[in-house]
Nucleic acid binder design. Structure first.
Length: 279
DNA sequence: CAAACTCCCTGTTAGC
DNA sequence: TGCTAACAGGGAGTTT
């Protein structure tokens, strides 16, 4: 499932592949993928326009457009669970799971692929709403321990729930939430209100560690065809029943917030801080 | 405000 | 072997 590292990898790929490309035609194969427009209106608004830049905010891919008469200058793409993007230089047959295809003037094509159809595209004129709905970027150096601690204190919930809520902090999903909590030696069900400044620092450091390492490896590959890219090997996520890499204890799977959650009860005690400190 | 639930979807897997 | 039902999950929305 694409989270911040997978989205960041996709953004870097698109920067290389589509900046400067001009849209010749658009084919919407699943109308609900386009959240803001009808397929016809979407196509009309996009034909003739050029991709000026590609960036990211949380798990949203932001394509800045130029040209055209409308004010709709941003094409946002969210991959949700199973979305992925392929840019190819020539014509390619339509895949069973392709939902939207952009045809470029130079003959290239962008295939938006999404088996489960949860992904969305938005064509909008401003980005302010993203700042309203999303918390800070975890890798933003302006986010320091004190600010992160204050964010935690503002909420009364579990750490896992806190990390998954994009309005608290942007870009973390189920995999990297579990990874970060394990590295920090914190229990997913620990309460946000009880986190000390020291533990907040440990958690923020762990979040940055797992996200940075995953970006370097182009994300996580589950071998199930859902996310195709990366070489990041989770330390705890998806390893229920296997041994903890730090203490050899057995990794448990519990459910928090209707999400499967992986932890080592020895390294991530609920009450006192354990013998295993994060890295 | 938080928690719990529903919805959107389909590929995979467990169970019969 | 072939079927069905359960399950996974991000995020928006609704209800408790």
């Amino acid at each position: 499932m694409p989270e911040l590292p997978e989205v960041e990898s996709t953004v870097r790929y698109l920067q290389e592949k589509i900046v400067g490309s001009i849209i010749r035609d658009v084919q919407v194969l699943w109308h609900r993928t386009v959240a803001t427009h009808s397929p016809a209106a979407f196509t009309t608004a996009l034909v003739g326009r050029k991709f000026r830049s590609v960036s990211r905010r949380g798990k949203y891919i932001i394509c800045e457009l130029e040209g055209g008469t409308q004010k709709l200058n941003y094409l946002l793409m969210h991959l949700r669970m199973t979305g992925s993007i392929d840019v190819i230089s020539g014509r390619e047959p339509i895949d069973k799971h392709d939902r939207v295809i952009f045809f470029f003037k130079d003959g290239g094509e962008l295939h938006y692929h999404d088996p489960r159809k949860f992904g969305k595209m938005y064509l909008v004129s401003e980005l302010a709403f993203l700042e309203t709905k999303l918390g800070p970027e975890p890798l933003d150096p302006l986010l320091n321990t004190e600010k992160f601690h204050a964010l935690l204190k503002k909420r009364d919930t579990t750490l896992k729930t806190f990390l998954l809520d994009q309005s608290n902090i942007a870009g973390i999903g189920n995999i990297y939430a579990d990874e970060a909590l394990w590295f920090a030696g914190l229990h997913p069900r620990a309460r946000t209100k009880k986190v000390t400044l020291l533990k907040a620092e440990r958690l923020l450091t762990s979040i940055r560690k797992v996200l940075s390492e995953a970006i370097e490896k182009f994300g996580t590959d589950f071998g199930d065809g859902v996310v195709e890219m990366g070489g990041y090997a989770p330390s705890i996520y998806g390893r229920a029943g296997e041994g903890c890499l730090r203490c050899q204890g057995v990794i448990r799977r519990i459910v928090v917030q209707q999400r499967s959650t992986h932890l080592c009860v020895a390294c991530q005690p609920l009450r006192r801080s354990g013998s295993c400190t994060g890295t």
